[in-house]
């Protein structure tokens, strides 16, 4: 962001049901919700927020398939081309014996790939500090946030009175540094 500042107006609610009602009201008024923060995964929020389904499972599949291929092709190449050895009179390319390691590497690649992708797309990870709106969001408050960047005072006060009408616990304004 050019200015490097993000002005936010947000309401805190005591219960997820109040949050749901507020989000619905905001959607009905076609207000542009910046984000919603909750202390735990609230079921039923995704359809109201009109979120698309997460595509992490596709990432998982791709990485898993990569693991399968890596393991199976490496073992096949090593035991048929690079250094063929006969173990116990078995064929060089003894496919059943490759299954356990192929399976393990499928799982390993899938897990690491998905976890790394998750943190990357969420903008989280070791050494990351994200400024939060309110310390109580990770405790017991449910937060509905609107960006007020570039909004006139009139618009902001309209938004404020809208939020006050949704029976919040509190309505606050905060400026985030990025």
């Amino acid at each position: 962001m050019a200015s490097g500042k993000k002005e936010v107006l947000y309401a805190l609610y005591n219960d997820e049901t109040e949050l749901f009602a507020a989000i619905r009201a905001a959607k009905a008024k076609h207000l542009d919700i910046m984000d919603v923060f909750t202390p735990f995964p609230v079921h039923g929020l995704d359809p109201i927020m009109e979120f698309e389904e997460s595509r992490l499972h596709i990432v998982g599949f791709v990485f898993g398939a990569l693991g399968t291929l890596t393991a199976f092709l490496s073992m096949s190449w090593i035991f048929t081309r690079d250094w063929p050895i006969i173990f116990g009179g078995k064929p060089y390319w003894s496919v059943p014996a490759f299954i356990p390691i192929t399976f393990e590497l499928t799982v390993l690649f899938c897990a690491i790939g998905m976890v790394v992708s998750f943190y990357t797309v969420c903008g989280l990870g070791p050494g990351v500090t994200n400024e939060t709106l309110d310390d109580r969001i990770t405790d017991d408050k449910f937060c509905l946030a609107f960006s007020t960047n570039g909004k006139s005072d009139g618009e902001v006060s309209d938004l404020k009175s809208f939020l006050n009408s949704t029976k919040p616990f509190e309505v606050n304004a905060k400026t985030l540094s990025k």
Binding site: T38, P39, V42, S54, L124, T132, C143
Partner: peptide, 13 residues
Amino acid sequence: FGWTGSAKHWQRW
């Protein structure tokens, strides 16, 4: 890891 509790993050989580 800079967790914020954003609804989209929870969905992915």
